[in-house]
Amino acid sequence: MSDEPIAPTDLAPPPVMPPPVVTPPPLLPPKPVTTGWVFTLLKTVLTVLVVALITAGMILLHKMTGWEGIWKVTLIGTCGLFAILSVLVIVGGALDVRKLLHRLRERESSSESDSGD
């Protein structure tokens, strides 16, 4: 038996893996602020504001006049809005009927295939 020490097979320090290079995701250019975007934002804020104001108004009205006041305002408000809507629908609807008949006439003449079925 030899007294020679057995040489270690692997004296070299284990290789150290370099830390993975994290490449940052490419920076997307910020979305351009378009007129449409601003308009949508304004519309949303305005809608929230109007809803909040109406709710606050209704709560105040309920405190001052009870359910009677709420239903009076509801009745007059909805009737008024319905009157305006009726005028708009009567005028706009007549134009839409004309457009609808025009389109159907066009389709009939070009005998378009029935894709809906």
Binding site: L85, L88, V89, V91, G92, G93, L95, D96, V97, K99, L100, L101, R103, L104, R105, R107, E108, D114, S115, G116, D117
Partner: peptide, 26 residues
């Protein structure tokens, strides 16, 4: 009057999917 346009199923059931907003409301 409108009978002649109701010849296919899409027109008969969905008015040819050609209804505008105001007519839609009506």
């Amino acid at each position: 009057f409108v009978k002649r346009y109701a010849g296919n199923m899409t027109n008969f059931v969905s008015a040819g999917r050609a209804v505008g907003t105001w007519l839609g409301v009506a």
